[in-house]
Design a protein around this nucleic acid. Structure first.
Lengths: 172, 172
DNA sequence: TATTTTTGTAATTGATTAATCACTAAATTT
DNA sequence: AAATTTAGTGATTAATCAATTACAAAAATA
């Protein structure tokens, strides 16, 4: 059985944070709830993250990092690239639903340092997708990339609000 | 010069609320800031809206109501329907930027009564758009409607985050 | 085994803010 | 002009919570 190292503890708290933030949002989540989920005392959270904001940033950053990495791992022949990327996204959102929720939440938080992470995340995804589309010879790559991003965000929202009707069931 | 009737006052507070919420988000907006912008005392806000939540709901509801109405007012021949609707949306977002911001904010607030308004608003827009597209004989109307909604939401986010690069400059 | 470092908690604080209360002045009605 | 309703404010409260402090026990080290 693995011993609870320092990094290990930090990871547990981050994971607890993801859960609580996903459920309650940034402002309604309390550090006490995070602590409880991580099975430690409330003040101990601050030994690993200086502020609640810093903890949320770590969570948001992970969410964006993972989705970008997921896209980078997609291998596909040009003609099936878009389909494969959608597939990768769908897989990820089943595997890490909390990270999806945190993305939605992060976008409308007004604290500057958090907003900056959200901006960076969205920018990177958009940039990477565009490059990939271009390289695959996708027609009208600019538009396809922003539509791809847009539909992805709407999926996230639809998941977060529990409003499945927002997206069309049967894909094109 | 128009006298300040009761309805008039309520309207002023709602307008002030829209401004403050758009700038600070739901949780960071204080009723004192709303009051200041409306040039009244903080407690007086509560004579018109029982709670801060109720004020936000009124603001969010107005935002969704306006966008739906805007779409309903669009007249266009079938082949130019989509273009006209995009045009209408763009006009509206220049005319009422605060309502756009409030839509983004409303989507990730976790208070149930607020979330319900957001769900209703999105649902209605999606439903109406779909009907309209179908009636105009748009091919693959389901998909076009959700793409339309998705791109609209991404526009809102891109506006709220001040991240214009998210959407492709030159429309197709 | 004495000392220091690490891991952890209980108790407290300090700031914030929605909402209420207690009240006054001005209109309006009788 | 007395009585009542309407419009409005200053002061207060009650709750919440992020963050700090002060401490204790266990582990590691000398």
């Amino acid at each position: 059985m693995a011993k609870s190292t320092k990094e290990n503890r930090k990871e547990e708290i981050l994971e607890a944070g993801l859960e609580v933030f996903a459920e309650k949002g940034y402002y309604n989540a309390t550090t006490a709830q995070v602590a409880e989920k991580a099975a430690i005392s409330q003040p101990y959270v601050f030994r690993f993250f200086k502020t609640k904001e810093e903890l949320f940033i770590a969570a948001l950053d992970r969410a964006f990092e993972r989705i970008l990495q997921t896209f980078k791992n997609v291998e596909a022949k040009p003609y099936q690239l878009v389909a494969k990327m959608i597939e990768a996204y769908e897989e990820l959102s089943e595997l890490h639903p909390n990270e999806i929720a945190v993305q939605v939440i992060g976008v409308s938080v007004t604290e500057k340092p958090i907003q900056d992470i959200a901006k960076k995340g969205l920018s990177q995804i958009r940039r990477y997708t565009l490059e990939r589309f271009k390289a695959a010879g996708v027609k009208d790559a600019e538009r396809e990339a922003s539509t791809f991003l847009a539909r992805g965000m709407l999926c996230n929202i639809s998941y977060f609000l529990d409003l499945p009707e927002l997206i069309d069931g049967k894909g094109k």
